[in-house]
Simulated scan of single mutants.
Amino acid sequence: MQKRMRFVAVNGSERPDGNTREVLAHAAELLAGHGIDLEVINLGELKLSGCGPCGDCNSRCEPCAVTGDDVPAVVDRMALADGIIWAAPVHGFGPATTMQAFIERAGVGYLRFQRPLTNKVGGVVVIGRRYSHTEVYNQLVANVLLNRMIMVGSGFPAILYGNHRGEALADTEGVEMLDRMLHRMVAMARLLAEHRELTGRDALATEYANERDDRWFARRYATVGQA
């Protein structure tokens, strides 16, 4: 018997009660109908340190030495999930600064060493007034793929237009795209779980999940300057 599935949504908005949170509340209700729990992590309520000035991120093979914020705990919670949703509003023609800071800090500091999100089902939803939605969406999709997650096509991107609170959920076409994405994420997560239960292994290869298993980066940078 399969365990109850759990998705994690990372809310990249710094606002405590805006459109992004409302959209994720809608997502939680839809997923609950599938018997899936959605944990929403609101980055605006957490302590996020900026990346430090050390500059050795491409040569070391251990997690970041910067400590004292909530990023490691968020990474741990994502690592236990079956699906991950990146959710961010558009601010200043890019993703909200909290989302950008988290992607940099989590990715460089932790995710790149073990790739713990490998083969989890990934999804992206973007909310904003009327500009740069696709640019932000494409950036977050690239990050999903960088972390070896699995995205399923669901038609048009889950992009919702709205400015003031409540307007995003009034975008009926955007909500439909979000719903399609969620339904297909659920189907894919269940398919992958069934495969693991039947075979005892992941459906997709995991041997390249961690590009630093063999200290490739350490060997590469050890030769710099020797030529």
Results as ranks from 00 to 15, higher is better:
Gly50Leu: 15
Gly109Ile: 03
Ala187Ser: 06
Glu135Met: 12
Gly50Ile: 12
Gly107Val: 00
Asp17Trp: 13
Ala158Leu: 02
Asn11Lys: 02
Ala9Gln: 11
Ala25Tyr: 09
Arg212Phe: 08
Ala170Arg: 05
Asn147Trp: 13
Arg215Cys: 09
Gln114Lys: 10
Leu178Ser: 13
Leu204Val: 07
Leu146Met: 04
Arg130Ile: 06
Thr98Leu: 11
Ile84Leu: 06
Thr223Arg: 15
Gln2Phe: 13
Glu135Tyr: 13
Phe7Val: 05
Gln114His: 13
Leu191Ser: 07
Gly52His: 05
Thr118Trp: 01
Asn58Lys: 05
Val224Gln: 15
Phe7Leu: 04
Ile159Arg: 02
Glu29Phe: 07
Glu135Lys: 08
Leu169Ser: 09
Asn19Ser: 05
Asn210Gly: 09
Asn138Tyr: 14
Val186Met: 03
Cys54Glu: 12
Arg112Cys: 14
Gly122Ser: 08
Arg77Asn: 08
Cys57Met: 05
His195Pro: 00
Pro95Ser: 10
Arg4Val: 14
Leu24Pro: 14
Leu182Lys: 14
Tyr221His: 12
Arg60Val: 14
Val186Ala: 11
Ala209Leu: 09
Ile85Leu: 10
Thr134Trp: 14
Met78Val: 03
Arg215Ile: 05
Ile84Thr: 07
Arg196Thr: 05
Ala87Ile: 02
His195Gly: 01
Ala106Gly: 04
Arg148Ser: 13
Arg201Phe: 06
Lys3Ala: 07
Val75Arg: 04
